[in-house]
Design a protein around this nucleic acid. Structure first.
Lengths: 206, 206
DNA sequence: GTCTATATTGAGATAGAC
DNA sequence: GTCTATCTCAATATAGAC
């Protein structure tokens, strides 16, 4: 009956508390958020949180792990399904921005606390997920170079990092109530990435 | 006699301790670094740090403030000096990557703790610096659009954010001992930004 | 599933001697 | 400029009643 992957199935109350914790972690930072803050926001005492969770860390762990499992699964589907490199890259970028739209707080936690979390053994899986993600994106970029739709001589790994960093950190200024939807930002970023900002044909490497 | 701008002049010992603190903040995170850690690394007791600094916060404050003042001054010089939009943009990007090379630890602290610091009144100046920085970069991009060297209809603010985010977060994977120098990464990023990754001329908006 | 009550630890910071 | 010694507070987490 469980929908879970790596993560324990959760009651509704649990999920509710997790969502509250995510908002607080995103807003104040993981370290600066106390279990009392979370309890207060959830309308219970801090001690009662430990009926649902082992520790403050495990809350962040569940949030981030569950998100990344979902995103990675989507990446896998895209790369396995779509043979066209440009369309696949577009889909990957839209998928990431979609996660920012649907799970803003958790993405913010991931982005802001990445350096912190990757220090702890409990978050060791982050490396694995990050490696597979890189492999998938780089595969798509390399395919594009092979088929000639992307420029020859491109450093796929560097392009991936540029894009990954720019996309995820946008969660820091992304405003769900703002003028631009996540898909619109995705398209704007893709426009720059694919065609560049230079207006006139240049005597460059192409 | 003082070399300082907004920041108190410092003895050599002070600077040494600041550099040590920067490394620890960058490595373990600001919150996870204790004043005892800093004292240990500096070879003194934690209490002795308070002869040099008011608080742990003030150490991070000095580090980040001093760095951003220097970088902003460089940006100002570039924008005031160079009329050519593409050359100015190149210089801005190289300037940022140069800061990553020379002040890796402090840049990492700034990037990792930005969301945390901007919450505190003491770091209110971050907003001001960020705003002026955005204005400077956007000015250069808009100039490029006006003179036709950058594509018409470009959202300068979005391009700035994309670039800013991608550049600064690269401090998380930048390896001073790695194959690529900061200038090489800057050029690679600029190549993507200016010309895009698409290899063939496309029937796009240009 | 939440509360009462509290154990325990570790943090930032201070006062005054040397 | 550093040390000795310590204060004070706030944090995570636990035990057991309801």
């Amino acid at each position: 009956m469980s929908t879970a992957g790596a993560v324990r199935a959760g009651s509704e109350r649990r999920d509710e508390i997790l969502a509250i914790a995510a908002e607080l972690f995103a807003e104040r930072g993981f370290a600066a958020t106390t279990v009392r803050d979370i309890g207060d926001a959830a309308g219970i005492l801090s001690g009662s949180l430990y009926h649902h969770f082992d520790s403050k860390e495990s809350m962040a762990d569940e949030l981030v792990h569950e998100l990344l499992d979902r995103v990675l699964a989507a990446y896998r589907r895209i790369v396995a399904t779509d043979d066209d490199p440009e369309r696949a890259l577009r889909a990957l970028v839209h998928e990431a921005f979609s996660a920012i739209a649907t799970d803003r707080a958790t993405v913010a936690v991931m982005v802001n606390e990445w350096s912190l979390f990757t220090q702890y053994p409990r978050f060791a899986y982050l490396r694995g997920i990050e490696e597979e993600t890189e492999r998938l994106w780089v595969t798509v970029i390399d395919r594009g170079v092979d088929t000639g739709v992307f420029r020859a001589g491109l450093d796929a790994r560097m392009v991936y990092r540029l894009l990954r960093d720019a996309i995820w950190v946008s969660v820091r200024w992304y405003d769900p109530k703002g003028d631009d939807t996540a898909d619109e930002i995705a398209d704007a970023y893709l426009a720059v990435l694919l065609d560049g900002v230079a207006g006139a044909r240049r005597g460059a490497v192409r």
